[in-house]
Amino acid sequence: MKSDQVSGLMLFALAVCVWWLNRAFPVGSLSDPGPGYVPLLLAIAFGGIGLLIAAFGGRSEPLLAIRWPEAGRAAVILIACAVATLALERIGYRLSIMVFLVFFLGVVERKKPLVVALVAAGFSLASFYVISDLLRVPLPRGPWGF
């Protein structure tokens, strides 16, 4: 399989999903289009374009030629961001960002502990001060008010 053939078929599958979900909304008539009218048009266009990409995708590079050397690191980044997001409203901005930075700098990048501590504490405290205290943008605080 070629990369464009796969991506085109993925887009077509997504268009089918949209069409399926859109059945819940009335399409209405041409003179009084309902909330499902434009999404239906877009799903048809999306599916059609997906099929065209797949059809003209014969000259694209093979799927296996796409290299993913950074995929493992990318997955770690996304998971760490998700954990930090979960923690944000539970333990507060400063603590969750501090732990987040300690993880990246200390565990993933293996930097010296003192530098890690300084960067993590400095960044989380300074950014909280600038954004929350100076610019008055409310940021979450943990149960200990921190």
Binding site: L78, C81, T85, I97, L105, E109, F123
Partner: peptide, 28 residues
């Protein structure tokens, strides 16, 4: 050192637009 701080800024920026965790999940 730079990219973890940029990630933290991204989380911070998205959250603070409307104080919504959904926005952060959408961003991720």
């Amino acid at each position: 050192y730079l990219y973890p701080c940029i990630l933290a800024f991204c989380i911070l920026g998205c959250y603070s637009v409307s104080n919504s965790m959904i926005d952060v999940w959408i961003m991720l």
